[in-house]
Amino acid sequence: MEQTTKCEMLLTVNGEQHSVIARPADTLLFVLRTILGLTGAKPGCLNGDCGACTVLVNDVPIKSCMILAIETVEKKITTIEGLKHTPIQQAFVEHFAFQCGYCTPGFIMNAHALTKKHPLASDEIIQEWLQSNICRCTSYKEIEEAVKTVLANNSASLNDNHF
């Protein structure tokens, strides 16, 4: 019986602790969406191919359809619901970097991590990171512009610090 195989796990999501009861075989994506009601991370393939389910685990972008919830116990999980008025969200809005918006949470999580980890990312690094997500609506050019705006502001503020 299924019930007997479930177990309790303590997850830290967007700074809050949640005790959830789930199967060890349940993915983080499933637990976030179905048990915690955080539907921002999207299922697009459940196969690691599309990136719509990307969340941050200890600040590293991870495809939440390919990781077990139980693996993330004692780790820091950040979902799109945990981002509030970040520069990358603002830039996505201003640059029309989405249409249907379904790929957007995953793209933003990845791009957010990118701009944090590589505040001055080169074109090669941007490409390497953002290749992990598929967007079917935009031409990617809009997303590129959004990310580069945030990076340009990063470099501007880094320069400011020097003075």
Binding site: G40, I80, E81, L83, K84, Q89, G101, T104
Partner: peptide, 8 residues
Amino acid sequence: AWDKVTGA
């Protein structure tokens, strides 16, 4: 737009 960038 803001709903789409916040997961709402």
